[in-house]
Structures are given as structure tokens and as C-alpha cells.
Design a protein around this nucleic acid. Structure first.
Length: 94
DNA sequence: GACATGACCGCAC
DNA sequence: AGTGCGGCCATGT
């Protein structure tokens, strides 16, 4: 099985209402120290897979996307719906 | 093949 | 709370 598929597999297991960090996902997938690969894997993941990409944050608990990014807003909204408290709430305020 | 880039991480200051 | 640095490595130029 390819590494990228391991990432997808692990990411898909994140339960509703919970989050994981990129490094954590990589770790569980048996790829320690390869957080960057997690981000690539998520980007490359087919939409049809419906991976909970929004449940993956930085180790700091912040959203990884830059300000003013549409994805950032989307991710924030998803997390709110699941009752997850995100650190960078400012996005929501505007 | 060298170099830059990125949805990252942890540590040091 | 920022910033910088070294580590990580797939991709693109």
C-alpha cells in the first residue's frame, strides 16, 4: 500500500467532534516526522473520498490555511458545526 | 541534478 | 507571542 493511502486511511478514522494534527496523522500512518506529506496527501485526495480534511489542524491547534483563504473559512465553519473550538476564531468574527 | 516551495513540527531565543 | 532554524520529503521548474 502506498504511503499516501495510509494517510487517507488514518485521516478517515478521525471521529466526529475530534481533531488531529498533520504530524499526528502521519505518525499513526506509520510515517513519523512526515507531517508535510500529510498536507500533500490531503490536497491530492479525491473529492469522492469525502475525507474529513477539516478535522486536521496544526499542532498548535490553529488552522493551517493563510488568512483570507476560502478554505480557511470553510474549515472553520465545519469545525464549528461539530462543536470544535478552534484557536484562531478571528476569522469568524468578520 | 540543483533549487525552491509547501494545508508541517519542535525547539530555542 | 514572534521569529528563526533544522528536519522532513514529494513536486515542479
Amino acid at each position: 500500500m502506498k504511503d499516501i493511502q495510509k494517510i487517507w486511511q488514518v485521516a478517515a478514522l478521525i471521529p466526529v467532534g475530534k481533531v488531529a494534527s498533520y504530524g499526528q496523522v502521519a505518525d499513526l500512518a506509520g510515517l513519523p516526522g512526515r507531517a508535510r506529506f500529510t498536507s500533500k496527501a490531503l490536497t491530492a485526495a479525491p473529492k469522492s473520498m469525502q475525507l474529513p480534511w477539516f478535522r486536521i489542524l496544526r499542532s498548535s491547534g490553529h488552522i493551517a490555511f493563510p488568512k483570507s483563504s476560502d478554505f480557511r473559512i470553510q474549515q472553520y465553519n465545519h469545525l464549528i458545526e461539530e462543536g470544535i473550538l478552534v484557536k484562531n476564531m478571528r476569522v469568524h468574527m468578520l
